[in-house]
Computed example of a mutant assay.
Amino acid sequence: MIAYDPPNEPYSFPSKKNRTGIFKDIFKKLEPLTGDQYIFNNYPFARAIKLFDAGKVDIEPGINPAWRQHTFEKGIYSIVFERSIEVVVFVPGKKIKVRGPDDLAGKAVGMVRGYSYPRFDKAFHSGEIKRMDNLSETLLLEQLLAKRVNQVFVNLRTIQYEMQSRPEFRQFEVGDVVSAVDVMMRFHPSKEKALHRLNKGLKN
């Protein structure tokens, strides 16, 4: 099972912090319901995708199918268990209204490498908006703190957690929602039977 390295808190935490994170908590509760054991391994994003494509890892938690439409192995998906809301976050004094790509034209926007924002992807590909990739949402907020970019796309739950945990992040201005989609557990097709068990567990 995939846990990203570096992690995105509070969904997963570095092992040195001795915390499980939202995803590990969910699967811990699912184990007695499904009879399966779920083992997390930490991988950088690009390697995790390649391992999933090769069938060497079985589950990627918290995914919307649109985010993996360009991968070799599309995977099969569980029932919806959560809604992922992504927002644009600004350095102080730089907040603007973001209704769509035109509002960010000519600007650089930080986001996690490999993350997809369908409403904005055309503008990224054309260069209308400059995409600045980083390895995790926490690192994006560090960039924002250093004013290397004026705005980043991050998960709403993540920015709320980080602002609560780190006082220096409380100066940031949270703007509009840029994406709101249902998320599921992405399974390798070879584990279809385990997916059926997990779906029953999620319903409980």
Score class of each variant (00 low, 15 high):
29 K>C: 09
153 F>M: 15
32 P>C: 08
41 N>Q: 14
137 E>N: 12
168 E>F: 10
201 G>I: 01
71 T>C: 03
41 N>T: 11
80 V>L: 09
168 E>M: 09
54 A>H: 03
144 L>W: 00
181 V>K: 05
182 D>Y: 07
194 A>F: 02
185 M>D: 08
189 P>M: 00
163 M>N: 08
73 E>L: 05
46 A>F: 05
150 N>G: 15
17 K>P: 06
192 E>F: 10
79 I>W: 05
192 E>P: 07
89 V>K: 01
28 K>Q: 12
5 D>V: 03
93 G>C: 07
87 V>P: 02
187 F>M: 11
16 K>F: 11
34 T>E: 14
195 L>E: 03
76 I>M: 04
46 A>K: 13
101 P>G: 04
35 G>N: 10
204 N>T: 13
4 Y>T: 07
28 K>T: 15
103 D>S: 09
105 A>K: 15
170 R>P: 04
177 V>W: 06
201 G>V: 04
188 H>A: 00
90 F>E: 02
174 V>P: 02
203 K>F: 04
63 I>P: 03
105 A>N: 08
186 R>S: 04
125 H>F: 13
102 D>S: 10
69 Q>W: 03
114 G>H: 07
34 T>H: 10
14 P>E: 06
56 K>C: 04
47 R>G: 07
155 N>D: 15
29 K>A: 14
119 R>P: 05
42 N>L: 02
191 K>G: 08
129 I>P: 01
50 K>I: 06
34 T>K: 00
161 Y>H: 15
82 E>L: 12
118 P>T: 03
199 N>Q: 11
86 E>M: 09
174 V>E: 02
67 W>P: 01
74 K>L: 07
143 Q>R: 11
2 I>V: 12
124 F>I: 13
32 P>N: 12
184 M>G: 01
176 D>K: 04
78 S>Y: 10
21 G>S: 05
96 I>T: 08
